[in-house]
Design a protein around this nucleic acid. Structure first.
Lengths: 216, 216
DNA sequence: GGCGAACCGTACCGTACGGTACTGTGAATG
DNA sequence: CATTCACAGTACCGTACGGTACGGTTCGCC
């Protein structure tokens, strides 16, 4: 397996990044239907010809949008300190809140809708791209946290991916899908804190060692 | 609350049901793009004029497709017997497997993709419809099961919806979304059994009373 | 100043779709 | 037999989109 700090990202110019920003804005508040080449060109004050020169065709533009957005989401590593039962729980709750807020973000929802809409006809190219650049990244952060918890004797699990899968399910359940289907996300954002705490509490009951049973 | 055996379903004629079947077939193996009025008319051997007479417009056809498909999925109630720890677990595993298989179904995936694709522009009309007729129905089955378990002293929970939310998350996690994004569902279907058992086991560890700790 | 590259704005082309109108036909009804 | 109804088949219309071509403008470079 290759390290691939920069797998082969095109790394667009500032001007092109502006265009991609405009396109994302357009997608967010208009859906895919509003994302026509003409409207992108108009919104970004560029010509359609330039769009086709830079991104090849419409699908290239969509791929570029996903790659661009993913490059903006930096998954900071918040490890590197000795974990106690309290700090582990704290970090997990923080992770859960961040995850929920990322999933509820306008751009994330719009891009997921876009990729799902295209899943039937592009061989899930956009879908796997979103999966790779989105969930894998944030999942790595969780994985590091989980293994640190295990190393500190606070968590007990065999397979790390299984544990993360459980954690993810407890945090998100079908909330992501409901938001993708159009349920008003603004109304549920204020419950994210409580939801995160409940999910982490349940997760610790499942995977916490007896050593970490000093929870509220 | 009203009984509402027939809330206000249009209840289409057999001929129209055939048309809806053809439309669903078309949607499943071609995506939304393939679902043009002309192709539906051709596949169903009917005229476009009849389509518009019966369903109003394209959106009406889509709504009818969702309603039609939902009417075919009957959520049988498998309660009505004295629950023991073993039978409760058995019923929960059965429920989990059924849930996973429903979510992985071709038609379910296609309709969810369709509704998600339209969520941005129709005010989530299709989305709430799918939610209401799909998840609410199967959730009711789970709710009955959960309350029966509580009545038998095998489960302990305060809010039934919270418990169901947890159960759902443990069973599904992000698997539904991954399938919607195009990940090959056929490959993971054979793991549904193991997945269902693990999810139910975790759920019972969280919500099972000490009386029900006779698990494998 | 001359020149070429990059690019905007716009006009243009082919196609495909949603929706409507029209004609023909077979079956039921009187 | 005449009338009516429901429908298939098809032609048609307006529009909108993806993609291309072209004239005009700015900017850097020799």
């Amino acid at each position: 397996m290759q390290l691939a700090a920069h797998p082969h990202q095109p790394d667009y110019s500032p001007r092109q990044n502006d265009v991609l920003d405009s396109a994302l804005r357009l997608l967010v508040d208009g859906g895919e239907k509003a994302l026509t080449t003409a409207s992108v060109a108009r919104a970004a004050n560029c010509s359609k010809e330039s769009l086709y020169k830079w991104f090849g065709d419409r699908d290239g533009l969509l791929s570029a949008m996903i790659g661009f957005q993913a490059s903006k989401v930096r998954t900071f590593d918040d490890t590197a300190e000795t974990l106690t039962a309290a700090t582990l729980q704290e970090h997990l709750v923080l992770f859960a809140r961040d995850l929920l807020e990322v999933l509820a973000g306008d751009v994330s929802l719009a891009l997921n809708r876009l990729a799902i809409g295209q899943a039937s006809r592009d061989g899930s190219k956009l879908g796997s791209m979103l999966q790779e650049r989105g969930r894998r990244q944030i999942g790595k952060r969780a994985g590091v946290l989980l293994e640190a918890g295990r190393d500190a004797g606070l968590l007990v699990f065999g397979d790390r991916d299984d544990a993360y899968d459980t954690l993810y399910g407890l945090i998100v359940s079908d909330l992501h899908l409901r938001m993708l289907l159009g349920e008003d996300s603004g109304r549920m954002v204020k419950d994210f804190g409580r939801r995160a705490e409940k999910a982490v509490s349940a997760f610790l009951r499942l995977y916490g060692s007896e050593k970490s049973s000093a929870q509220s």
